[in-house]
């Protein structure tokens, strides 16, 4: 064999490559392995739609109530509540009802969009 050619061949490298090639040719049969893995996969916990709706809605409502209660507009809520109790339909009550319904619709819309 030509000695010059041998200079560029690393026999260990060739040996490893040959064995690795032979190794890759040997396919290991699945033999139920995939099924066993899939059966053992844990169920991922997903937050339910109700909770996903309740969290933003609850936070928004609470923040809105706190904000309004500490401003001069707080009397607006109180007036609306009194109108509701006395069953008197006034612009204040209608305005408050519209605001609450809007809040509900936006929250439900957001929750459904996330689904």
């Amino acid at each position: 064999m030509n000695a010059h050619l041998n200079l560029h061949i690393d026999p260990i490298d060739e040996l490893l490559k040959a064995d690795a090639r032979a190794n890759r040719m040997q396919h290991i049969d699945d033999d139920g392995f995939t099924l066993r893995v899939v059966d053992r996969l844990p169920v991922k916990k997903r937050i339910s739609a109700v909770v996903r709706f309740a969290i933003p809605f609850g936070c928004t409502l609470l923040a809105a109530l706190i904000a309004v209660a500490f401003t001069p507009a707080g009397s607006y809520m109180f007036d609306a509540y009194m109108d509701l109790v006395t069953e008197t339909i006034t612009p204040t009550l209608v305005g408050m009802a519209v605001a609450v319904v809007t809040l509900y619709v936006v929250s439900i819309g957001g929750a459904l969009n996330d689904e």
Partner: peptide, 20 residues
């Protein structure tokens, strides 16, 4: 989608190489 079938396909594809 937490698609278990898709993951099963990934397992099926890579199991031989990985186990080896």
């Amino acid at each position: 989608k937490d698609d278990r079938n898709a993951f099963g396909e990934l397992v099926r594809r890579h199991q031989s190489q990985l186990r080896s």
